[in-house]
């Protein structure tokens, strides 16, 4: 399984890999927003938590279909399914690799982009914490969506439709924590809800995704 993890990371960093795709999209989106809504810092401050979270979510979505589709096309997924690694483990490892190459860079880049959006100084801590807690859920839910659509040609649109509704709770709680944190209110409840969604996704969705892949490989 560690082999698979390193292979996925190596592939992401080699030419044509997915690394940087989500991050680049995130950077572009967040730098364009001030041009779109104007440089009024009051207004930017108000929308910053939402924009940062929506940006992170869409950036994550962008690279999801690569998780299994590439392996399906070149036949690796068949071979992995007959390998001595359980398919649930394959899904978990690939989702983790997706998080390392997509979610983690977003977490690291977000503070700099928060500055561009005049994010309240009290909110930086919560921005990093919510992204750190929330983005693994995006990768694991996304891996489930990718597994459901793995055998389909041009399954990307269907996958987005399946995955986006499942992303909404993470988005709501994430942005809510930042908003409350910026206002100096208690953040424990939305933060706990978000952590719960992540924990549930990481624990359960590899099994669902593996079942979906088994059906797709038949």
């Amino acid at each position: 399984m560690i082999r698979l993890f390193w292979r996925d990371l190596t592939l992401a960093f080699r030419s044509g890999g997915g690394f940087g795709l989500g991050l680049g999209f995130f950077l572009i989106l967040v730098t364009l927003v001030p041009f779109g809504v104007g440089p009024n810092s009051e207004r930017l401050m108000a929308i910053a938590p939402g924009i940062l979270w929506v940006g992170a979510l869409l950036a994550c979505l962008l690279s999801l279909d690569r998780i299994f589709a590439l392996d399906f096309e070149d036949g690796s997924l068949d071979l992995l399914a007959t390998a001595p690694i359980p398919l649930e483990g394959v899904v978990a490892v690939k989702a983790l690799a997706h998080w390392i190459t997509t979610g983690l860079p977003l977490v690291l880049a977000a503070p700099a982009l928060g500055f561009l959006l005049h994010l309240d100084s009290a909110a930086y801590r919560w921005l990093i914490i919510t992204l750190l807690i929330g983005t693994p859920a995006l990768s694991f839910i996304g891996a489930f969506g990718a597994a459901l659509t793995v055998g389909l040609k041009r399954g990307g649109l269907l996958m987005s439709l399946l995955v986006l509704p499942l992303y909404i709770p993470t988005l709501i709680f994430g942005a809510e924590v930042i908003r409350r944190g910026a206002g100096g209110f208690l953040v424990a409840t939305p933060l706990a809800m978000q952590a719960g969604i992540t924990a549930g996704s990481v624990a359960l969705l590899p099994f669902a995704a593996a079942a979906a892949i088994r059906v797709a490989l038949r």
Binding site: T10, L11, R14, D71, D74, G75, T82
Partner: peptide
């Protein structure tokens, strides 16, 4: 764990070298 399967598609990663491809599968099978 008796069967090794080889299909029409070879399951190769084009950006990995021949050695890396084989090392990966060797590692998967211990």
């Amino acid at each position: 764990d008796a069967v090794a399967y080889a299909a029409h598609a070879d399951g190769l990663k084009t950006t990995l070298t021949v050695r890396e491809n084989l090392m990966f599968w060797a590692g998967v099978y211990g």
